[in-house]
């Protein structure tokens, strides 16, 4: 397996903040996969990570979520009651988790499916038309990577190149046909999220 070390990326201090993000949507919308890519990329730049999925008795179309923790020291609880970041693909996820986000946190909302406000004046709220951007990038199915891109663009938790590399790794082999559209979707989301980056 090729490793990150072969493709040096910027691992400077701007990615030094410990953080956690809850990513939620319907089963099949790819939040668990997007979370895995975030965890993989963060691991590759030398971070401690944990990826904890919900695993209730769910079915296709049910809700699915994952908590990704990223830190520079070993992670204690991988279970986070009040996450610092929230990415929601659908309305039930926003209603369930929106109120739990830590004050000062960031909420990324998929406006293709959510026509409601977060009602959190104490958080940075980023609205992204994920399906539209994903379609323009080549595949509506890559909406999950648009959302991940918006989060990473705003929060700068990991360099964009590390995410792109993790996407390539994830889809290596017979799924390679998904790489181009997924990376393009991530980039589109990243550019949208970047405008919200705190200096």
């Amino acid at each position: 397996m090729t490793r990150m070390a072969e493709r040096p990326v910027d691992t400077n201090a701007s990615h030094a903040t410990d953080t956690d993000v809850l990513m939620a949507g319907f089963g099949g919308q790819g939040m668990l996969l997007a979370g895995k890519v975030l965890a993989q990329a963060s691991m590759e730049i030398g971070k401690e990570v944990s990826w904890l999925p919900s695993y209730g008795p769910e079915m296709r179309g049910g809700t699915a979520n994952v908590i990704v923790c990223i830190a520079s020291t070993p992670i204690g609880s991988p279970l986070i009651e009040s996450p610092r970041g929230l990415i929601v693909m659908n309305l039930p996820s926003l209603e369930k988790f929106g109120p739990k986000v830590k004050p000062g946190g960031v909420i990324v909302i998929n406006t293709s499916l959510v026509d409601r406000d977060a009602h959190r004046d104490d958080c940075v709220v980023i609205k992204v038309d994920a399906r539209d951007l994903a379609q323009k990038a080549g595949s509506a199915r890559a909406a999950n990577f648009v959302m991940l891109g918006a989060y990473v663009g705003a929060m700068d938790v990991v360099p964009a190149e590390a995410i792109e590399y993790a996407i390539e790794e994830e889809f290596a082999g017979d799924k390679a046909k998904f790489i181009a559209s997924s990376v393009a979707a991530f980039r589109a989301g990243y550019d949208a999220g970047r405008q919200f980056r705190r200096s």
């Binding site: 895995k36 965890a39 691991m43 401690e48 990570v49 944990s50 990826w51 904890l52 999925p53 695993y55 992670i75 991988p78 279970l79």
Partner: peptide, 10 residues
């Protein structure tokens, strides 16, 4: 427990 089983870590 189920958490260790289901969780991903490096």
């Amino acid at each position: 427990d189920g958490m260790i089983g289901q969780m991903m870590e490096p």
